[in-house]
Amino acid sequence: MLMSFLHPFYLIAAVLLLISLTLLQGLVEQLRNRAKSFFFLTLFIVAVNPLVNHRGTHILFYFRENPVTLEALMNGFLMALSLLAILILFISYNFVLTPGRFLYLFSKILPQTALLAMLTLRFVPLLIRRLDEIKIVQKSKGMTITEGRVKDRAKNGVSLVQILLTWSLEEALQTADSMKSRGYGVTKRSSYERYTFTKNDIISIVLLLVLFAGCLIGLFNGYGNLTLYPDLESTSMGGAEWSVFVLFLLYIGFPLLVEGREQFRWRYLN
């Protein structure tokens, strides 16, 4: 959706809605940490696009004898907004879809792969903690990657990773024993988690499908997509366009409504 509706109003609205969603979910810290990089990324795309893309008829000015067109600028702007919306959406996605839920969703289709993915996920922070420990111990032998010539540092770095791998492999053997001794791979795995389908879930799915279909129909009829080439279309919206816009807002804003309803109930109806 976010990649098809290339229209400034739609995308600005989507970005705003998604920011509200992350804020409502209490992910202020995550959003703040990434704000700077998101900003520069957006700026970069907006700035670079007109420099490499010279299509369009409205020439604003010449940059080193190359035309900078309004169309290209708008194109860059839309691409940047679309990407920004997706990035913000992922903050919320990571919060909602925990590894446990991920495992549950995929363990029906790919049980072994899902478990492997879980184990790998657990391994990454484990390896980082171990590497820190190794660094401290090796520092006492004068092996460091923070001082000295670049060549030596690189060599030391490789040695540290080498210890990390030998050590971790050895430890992993014990993990394998522990898994085996608790019957891993003996029969088909079952699951502790039980996410049941409630009436609310069904209503939500139906609503989302209707909204999605509405948006798609609008899209196929040429709404919600700014024509850039050969000539930039006006951004103003007519009557039918507005109704598609509302459908789009409802679709993107759906999680916000669900989340908002919960918080409202919690705050005022308790």
């Binding site: 029969t187 079952s190 699951s191 039980r194």
Partner: peptide
Amino acid sequence: AFGLENLGYSTDYI
């Protein structure tokens, strides 16, 4: 739950 899941017990039992 790891061991119980491995042996394929029902969710209720686990």
